[in-house]
């Protein structure tokens, strides 16, 4: 029967409604979001480069200068999160404040602050990694995969 290939009236209604929603809802301001991400994300990265140059100029070797820069950026992002400033910047920056290491710091400090009231162990300790956990888990897996490929082909 050819009717079986036709969507049911309920499905048709859903499809029609979703088309109506697409027409009605405003588009995200893509250009503004991209510009915000570029300017603020770029500023964070430029500041990071300035930090690397500074640490190298005071005598640190390149890997140590990189580690010191990461630590400094994480520290600043954590303080800004604690002061309630980071999320106000992120409103305009979007991916610009999520992608750099400062976003990682924010994703750990924000739940740690939030769940302090549920206690140190099951609040802070457990909830701290609710957002950063997936980043860590998949980061480890991809590092392991890259290592394996490197081992096999070198």
């Amino acid at each position: 029967m050819s009717e079986n290939e036709q969507p049911s009236p309920e499905e048709m209604q859903k499809i029609q409604y979703q088309q109506m929603v697409m027409k009605t809802k405003p588009k995200p301001p893509l250009l503004r979001n991209v510009a915000g991400a570029f300017i603020i994300g770029g500023t964070i990265c430029t500041f990071g480069q300035a930090l690397i140059n500074f640490y190298k100029s005071v005598g640190l070797a390149k890997p140590e200068a990189g580690a010191a820069t990461s630590a400094t950026l994480v520290f600043i992002a954590a303080v800004l999160t604690g002061l309630g400033i980071y999320d106000s910047i992120a409103k305009y920056a979007g991916a610009g404040t999520i992608v750099p290491i400062t976003g990682f710091a924010n994703s750990i400090v924000a739940p740690a602050l939030e769940f302090r009231r549920e206690g140190m162990v099951f609040g802070v300790g457990q909830k701290m990694f609710t957002l950063a956990g997936p980043v860590l888990a998949f980061g480890f897996v991809s590092a392991w995969l890259v290592g394996l490929i490197y081992y096999l082909f070198s």
Partner: peptide, 12 residues
Amino acid sequence: FPTEMGVQRPPT
């Protein structure tokens, strides 16, 4: 999300 989490809210 936690309130201090830096996320961009969509227009909807």
